[in-house]
Design a protein around this nucleic acid. Structure first.
Lengths: 361, 361
DNA sequence: CTGAAAGCGCTAACAC
DNA sequence: GTGTTAGCGCTTTCAG
């Protein structure tokens, strides 16, 4: 049935100009063995650089030459078949590839996986349950070393049944059930850090525009704010916290309310709100940071770094989440207790906070 | 060395609370065959739903039951080993996972690949030649169906030698050498569309702030601008085109120059410049679109959709690039001539252009 | 030091 | 309709 025309041994001089180099690379271990006049076992040993196996230097060289001459490539599938587990790590995401900054989860996972000799197999499920199921099945069938199950924003999730057939860790999400390994951003510390930037610059009346929609981030960032105030010996004033939809329009819309509070600084739930707030403040003829200092959250590069003035904020450690997820999967990171591991959210200072405006109330 | 304690055969009632379900799933085709009292060939046939093979309904059912009962999963590696080529498509990127919006290339490729039964194997090389080499080797060893070689911004590239060992297509980049399949955005059409938005609203004196750095986008977008003017019967005025660094600061900095040109509308090389320009214009007390209409390019969601007013722009079709790349690789898309396929850049109208300001020069 | 041979799990002829 | 069998390319004892 096979209708290849090249007489074996002939170099097949550039058959079709483009398209598949379909000469099907039939160069196998055996071919190399024959060419070098040794057995396949020997070739296997030199290919895998087994330290213990003592091969005559002369033989080794002969094999290496043959490999080069024939353009041999090991067949990873055969290798995996024998060993039983591949060098793949699966990453199923409900939308990280879609959303701007969370692509960093992929990036971090990929770098870390690579570092340990693993390749990333990704599947974007866009939240589609069925697709997700298929993706996990596929990964299982390809004998992945384990699966990273990630979400594009920090939230609780349930664990698809088939996921349990593999070694897995949740990334940027967590499950109610104890024992499921997970890594998430440390929202509380982040909120605390954000507030502390302001505190450090002498502000005492600091407003917080929180999100309206429930999420671990909403609770955590508020808690961090309160902790920071408390440690600074400032009483928590509920009147200083507002809520708005967490995007530019929400931030813009909150301007009026905010100004009634006569705060000297404001900490926004995220950078997008801060961006809207910038516009609102400008319309009121107010300038940042002189009239009001502002800090955001997320460190959404395109926005934060290029607002005028550039926005001080706290970064969501997406890259680290991906990397830590891989490390945890591979058992390189200690799994502390039953809790999800919390990744530190670093502070990024720019110019939207400088001197305390009319500080000291 | 292995110190697992479960007696084999026992259901292992939640042995270790977390970590690997290391029961190594040794359920093979043969196991199913034995359980169902048929041969492996029969099981293989029902698993792969071969239409032609006529299997007694009763037998088929018995096999299915056995499969379910044992929790059988086919081993994709073994399957691939037999067939010679996997259901993988490799995607090597120099930074798409890193950059905000270009992650859409991954997304589009993944969706399209999945649609045809392929999974995506990705590798982010961050421009590192060596890493790139390793990534390609790995993909070759895993017998990928083909490789998508992509760049995070549209540019010329050279083709790594090992890439030729596979079936490949360039995505968002192109090679000097003819015959290499490639898919890129249609910059000229994009530039033309951007200009036409303005034209359609009655503007005749349209400025263009181009980028300072050389790129296909720089040339293409300018050409499109000129074509649009020409078709509208407007003479090209070199005095109306400026150049600036293509980011917020660049756009902001170009404000002064722009205002000297007394244009009624401006088309910016990208959304980031437009964002900076918004700030500049505002400082001059000018409003958009009344005093000046503006359009951008890229449709960088976080920015364009949420500026005040929301920015009209032309989208870079990243998702489509990824999808078209896969289609081309699979031979589903006709490769027209030796040229790279050009993907249409759709127009996204928002409110930064409305009525012609002081139109008619 | 190197070769022979037995599989890894599955598919595809080809019998029966 | 269903079973037998010969590999796919590689690793790995076990002999020699």
């Amino acid at each position: 049935m096979n209708s290849r025309e090249n007489k074996p041994g002939e170099a097949a001089p550039a058959a079709s100009p483009r398209h598949r180099p379909e000469r099907a690379h039939p160069v196998t271990l055996r071919d190399v063995a024959e060419a070098a006049g040794v057995s396949t076992a020997t070739v296997s040993l030199v290919v895998n650089k087994k330290k213990d196996a003592r091969i005559a230097e002369e033989t080794r060289q002969r094999v290496k030459d043959a490999i080069r001459a024939l353009g041999y490539r090991p067949n990873a599938m055969a290798k995996t078949l024998v060993s039983g587990t591949s060098r793949f790590i699966g990453l199923v995401a409900d939308g990280v590839a879609t959303t701007p900054f969370a692509g960093q989860i992929i990036h971090g996972a990929q770098d870390e996986a690579w570092k340990h000799g693993y390749a990333l197999l990704i599947a974007n499920t866009e939240g589609n349950r069925e697709l997700e199921q298929d993706a996990i099945s596929m990964m299982l069938e390809y004998k992945v070393r384990g699966i990273l199950y990630s979400t594009w924003f920090h939230r609780e999730t349930d664990i698809p049944a088939s996921l349990r057939e593999a070694d897995f860790v949740l990334v940027n999400c967590f499950a109610a059930e104890p024992g499921a390994r997970a890594v998430v951003p440390d929202e509380v510390q982040g909120g605390k850090s954000a507030t502390e930037i302001l505190l450090r610059h002498g502000h005492r009346r600091i407003a917080f525009i929180n999100a309206t929609i429930p999420a671990p981030a909403k609770d955590g960032r508020l808690l961090g704010y309160r902790q920071a105030l408390e440690e600074a010996g400032i009483a928590f004033d509920p009147g200083l916290v507002m809520e708005a939809y967490p995007d530019q329009e929400g931030g813009y819309g909150a301007t009026g309310e905010l100004l009634k509070r006569s705060a000297t600084a404001v900490y926004c739930y995220n950078d997008r709100m801060a961006m809207g707030l910038y516009d609102g403040l400008r319309e009121h003829g107010l300038s940042i940071p002189e009239d009001l200092a502002v800090v955001g959250f997320d460190n959404q590069e395109v926005i934060a770094a290029h607002l005028r003035p550039p926005l001080s904020t706290v970064a969501l450690p997406h890259y680290e989440l991906g990397a830590a997820g891989v490390r945890m999967l591979l058992g390189l990171e200690e799994t502390a207790g039953a809790e999800a591991a919390k990744i530190h959210c670093p502070t990024v200072e720019r110019n939207s906070v400088r001197v305390a405006a009319r500080a000291k109330t």
